[in-house]
Design a binder for these strands. Structure first.
Length: 503
RNA sequence: GCACCGCUAGCUCAAUGGUAGAGCAGUUGACUCUUAAUCAAUUGGUUGAAGGUUCGAGUCCUUCGCGGUGCACCA
């Protein structure tokens, strides 16, 4: 290890002796990228030379193939690979000597013209080049890349350098979020930013991360949802708002849960849940079409079609269809607890909790193709408006695909008295031992007392959506820097500061 | 939190309880159209950590660390 770094430092010294210091370089005038050149010169004939056009390309050297008087380099930039061809006879002795010092991992820029080699490969015939940076660490195997998942997550930069697929996924994620914004902005929504630091973290059910404000000397929580603040903006008359923001939940970490994740929440005054369902369908279809390139998405072994309209099934109807269960068995708290035993599921502290467990066991396994499940019981939906003709259910749906929950939407409850009663019920549930129920946010009830227009809202888990559209089974593979336990040597901040990585 | 699996050279991987190895990378040399370049030579190890069993441990046992998967948890 130390030897490999020492060898690279020796190369650095050799470059400096020749008057080339890789770390003094500042800017490089890039006039072309690898993929552009490949497209532009795709028709260049065998042995062709486009000498009249000069290009400058820059990136990381990922392979060096010395051949005596000529050297081939594989240069990688953000668009892909391009080969550089350096010939001793066409450079000064000094410049060729510098080229010979370049190694895998170094950053370089090269200027020249495009030609086709005898082997038929497009390459840049290098007239001049510049060393733009030096790599002092050895890169992983050029053929196998970096396989060790722990190292991939801890040193994502190395993963990105050697595993092109990782970069592709992250670029696709960026495009998904961009397309999402474009689609929403075209429908006259305001993008807003609400606080992540809150005295009461409400709007969902999850344990929050706790922190402390020195200035105010008060405890604070990181938000677990953006819901309540966004609805305050609806009360305030902003009518259509959304936020794509980071949410923090102090809970378990597994293939589909990271403590911090990204959620889109969007609210539209004067819409109801049916409007939202159509919006949701159109958004999903738009994303699969523009970003994924087709309506059908592979999910492991399964093909999932996002062609609209999606399947719709009632919440109670689903239980009936998949397990023959009746309304009373679910909506009665005691009966639902009996069902848990029947299905061999551990006891639940609350009715709401029991229904979630039953849904997960009985219904979710059937939800491969995109499906709206609508009409959630009011006990599960403290912020949703009741159905007009069935007040035990709410105007709420969740969208599932690939057995994963992708979206949750409802017509928002805007009756302050009903909202107050539901918060009071939650106090009881919290007291009954469900630590994930947040304390009530009474100011939100006050906001509703000022009057909120009828409104529909939706939450979409961006990470899971990206998982779906990139066929990744783990949320860590769609996050650039998934949370990892620090290594023992780095666990104590003081020690970490005492021992910087040596030269 | 529980169970199982994994951790060996910079990377990818081998090694019945019996001398820790290969390929790539690196180093030295050859080579003016290579592309996993080739050819010749060559360096490199606290086998995640600490104990234990044994004549002898990468291998068996215990504890610990980190990761992965499953379960539990997670509207």
């Amino acid at each position: 290890m130390a030897d490999l770094v020492a060898a690279r430092r020796a190369r650095l010294a050799a470059l400096r002796e020749r008057g080339v210091d890789p770390f003094t370089a500042t800017r490089y005038d890039v006039t072309a990228h690898a993929a552009e050149l490949a497209t532009k010169y795709a028709e260049l004939p065998e042995q062709g030379r486009a000498e009249s056009e000069t290009w400058s390309i820059a990136g990381r050297i990922m392979a060096v193939r010395g051949q005596g008087g000529v050297i081939f380099f594989d240069l990688h930039d953000r668009t892909g690979r391009f080969q550089l061809f350096v010939r001793k006879n066409d450079l000064s002795d000094e410049a060729f000597a510098v080229a010979k010092e370049l190694e895998r991992g170094d950053i370089a820029g090269a200027t020249g013209f495009v030609f086709r080699t005898k082997a038929g490969d497009l390459s840049l015939y290098v007239r001049s080049f510049e060393v733009l940076g030096k790599s002092l660490q050895p890169l992983p195997d050029k053929w196998h890349g970096l396989q060790d998942v722990e190292k991939r997550y801890r040193r994502r930069y190395v993963d990105l350098i050697v595993n092109p697929h990782v970069r592709d996924v992250m670029i696709l994620r960026s495009r998904i979020v961009a397309e999402m914004r474009r689609f929403i902005d075209a429908r006259d929504f305001f993008e807003v930013e609400t606080p992540t630091l809150l005295t009461i973290a409400g709007g969902a059910s999850a344990r929050p991360f706790r922190t402390h404000s020195n200035a105010l000397d008060i405890p604070l929580n990181l938000r677990i949802a953006t819901e309540l603040n966004l609805k305050r903006l609806i009360v305030g008359g902003m009518e259509r708002v959304y936020e794509i923001g980071r949410i923090f939940r102090n809970e378990g970490i597994d293939a589909t849960h990271n403590p911090e994740f990204t959620m889109l929440e969007l609210y539209a005054a004067f819409w109801d849940v049916e409007d939202m369902m159509r919006f949701n369908e159109d958004l999903m279809a738009h994303l699969t079409r523009t970003v994924h390139g087709g309506e059908t998405v592979m999910h492991g072994e399964d093909a999932i079609s996002f062609a609209t309209p999606f399947r719709r099934i009632g919440y109670l109807e689903a239980f009936k269809e998949f397990a023959g269960l009746e309304r009373e068995q679910l909506l009665d708290a005691d009966a639902s607890l009996l069902l848990l035993r029947e299905f061999g599921i551990p006891d639940s502290p609350t009715h709401a909790h029991a229904l979630d467990k039953l849904f997960e066991r009985i219904v979710e396994p059937h939800l491969l193709q995109p499906t709206f499940v609508y009409g959630y019981p009011v006990v599960l939906s403290p912020l949703a408006k009741r159905m007009k003709d069935d007040p035990e259910l709410t105007q709420r749906y969740e969208l599932f695909a690939g057995h994963m929950e992708l979206a949750n939407a409802f017509t928002e409850l805007n009756d302050p008295d009903d909202q107050r009663r539901r918060f009071e019920l939650q106090i009881a549930e919290r007291a009954a031992g469900d630590e994930e129920i947040p304390p009530p946010d009474w100011d939100f009830v006050t906001a509703l007392e000022y009057g909120m227009p009828p409104t529909a809202g939706i939450g979409i888990g961006v990470d899971r959506l990206v998982m779906m559209l990139t066929d990744n089974a783990s949320v860590r593979d769609v996050l650039l820097f998934p949370l990892q336990r620090p290594l023992p040597a780095d666990a104590r901040e003081d020690d970490a500061e005492d021992a910087p990585p040596g030269p």
